[in-house]
């Protein structure tokens, strides 16, 4: 008599809701929607650069309460689950070894934050924010 193998019941669509780590994983993966959204938003902006009228119309189309709320939410979500998450994972994905010694993870993470701050400041300067 053969026994039935035990198969743990598991939902194919909601398995990540069982565990906090899995939830964070899914929240992290979902940032791809924001990356795609903003990439195409920039592409529509590039298309609108064909004339001053079209560019100003593009800018005007972006100025509403829904977009303010969305950008605010997107910025916080993106920082937590993409930017900071990516920096924290960087030393695990590409550990650095100098001679015999492995460089401490915190140095790699801090280096990422510094480069990010400088680059962001440069982009803001380029865009004329200050």
């Amino acid at each position: 008599m053969s026994r039935q193998p035990y198969i743990r019941p598991m939902s194919k669509t909601t398995w990540y809701m069982r565990n906090g780590r899995y939830k964070v994983y899914m929240l992290r993966e979902m940032t791809c929607l924001l990356v795609g959204f903003y990439s195409f938003l920039v592409i529509f902006g590039l298309a609108a650069l064909s004339s001053a009228e079209r560019w100003n119309a593009f800018l005007a189309s972006q100025q509403n309460a829904a977009m303010i709320a969305f950008h605010g939410f997107a910025l916080i979500y993106f920082l937590i689950y993409q930017t900071f998450a990516w920096f924290e994972l960087a030393p695990k994905a590409m550990p650095l070894q100098i001679g015999e010694k492995k460089l401490s993870d915190s140095y790699i993470v801090i280096a990422h934050y510094i480069v990010w701050a400088v680059l962001s400041a440069f982009i803001f300067w380029l865009a004329g924010v200050f």
Partner: peptide, 12 residues
């Protein structure tokens, strides 16, 4: 990760 926070801020 490096560029989009600034980009989103500009759109904001």
């Amino acid at each position: 990760s490096f560029v989009f926070p600034a980009l989103i801020t500009l759109f904001f």
